[in-house]
Amino acid sequence: MAVLMLTGAGWWYARHWQPSPDEYPVQGVDVDAGSGAIHWGTARGQGVDFAYVLATAGDTVRDPGFESHWAALPANGIRRGAMHRYSLCSPAVAQADHFNASVPRTLDALPVAVDFAFAPDCAARPRRDALIADIRAFLERVERHMGKPALIRVTGEFEDEYRLSTAIDRTFWGRRRFLPPSDLARGWRMWQASDLRIVDGFERPVNWNVAAQ
């Protein structure tokens, strides 16, 4: 019984934990259609300063929740950024054009985030030099459209394989539960600290992120 109580207490703590607001005063979330219903006014009251919203993936997918979230965020005093989920199975230029056609250039937008992770539906593993060249071509087109340098989000597994942070001169967004990322050559500007957190205003657990000062 004591073990069960400790386990339950640990799980409750994990679901409610966030990095210290004193150390990281700017905190927020990233969402997509799978995040479920969101009441952004309530979320703002729970300390959500910004939200990244998935807009596109690969060269054909548009997230069905993007437009409604994109419109609701400024109305609730939350800074907004768009995200693209990069696919190793789609041409880089086609992905960039798909994103640019789906996301308007908006003066108040945060830098676009480009997410790199291995996907179960894509077995392609290009050579590192070829991938780096493709990413640079993608970034050139997207950044010209958006008017700002991009933010690169990468999983530890992807970074171990391709070492993007040693080749791409951009700011990085690391992903590691509970502990700051330590595997990025350029350090991190953003940190996804939890994908378990329960927050009022969200139907499901959220990806909780903080910005470095």
Rank of each mutant, 00 (worst) to 15 (best):
Y52P: 02
E143T: 11
V142E: 08
T56S: 01
G65P: 01
A124S: 12
L131P: 08
V112E: 02
D49Y: 03
R136D: 12
A117Y: 15
R85H: 12
F66P: 02
Y86M: 06
A123K: 12
R105A: 14
V93P: 05
R79E: 13
F118D: 08
C122G: 03
E67W: 05
R80V: 00
D129E: 11
L110E: 10
R80Y: 00
I135V: 15
H84E: 04
R85D: 08
L88N: 10
V142W: 07
T56G: 03
L88M: 06
I38F: 00
F50W: 07
V48E: 02
S90Y: 15
S68G: 13
R105S: 10
R136A: 12
H39R: 11
H69D: 00
A133Q: 10
P120G: 11
L73P: 00
G41W: 00
T106Y: 15
G65C: 02
V114Q: 07
P74T: 01
G65I: 01
Q95R: 02
D59R: 05
G47W: 02
F118A: 08
R144K: 12
R128C: 09
H145E: 07
R153W: 08
N76C: 04
G147K: 01
A119S: 15
E140K: 15
E140L: 10
D134N: 10
R44T: 01
A124D: 15
A51P: 06
D97G: 14
L107R: 14
R153Q: 10
D134V: 12
A123E: 14
R62L: 09
Q95E: 14
A75P: 03
F50E: 05
L107F: 15
Y52I: 00
L88I: 06
F99I: 02
A119E: 13
P111F: 03
R62F: 03
A117L: 14
H98A: 07
A75W: 02
E67H: 09
H69S: 04
H145Y: 06
V93E: 14
D108T: 09
A94Y: 11
D59M: 04
A55Q: 03
H39N: 15
G65V: 01
L131Q: 12
D115Y: 08
A75H: 03
K148P: 09
A119N: 13
R136C: 06
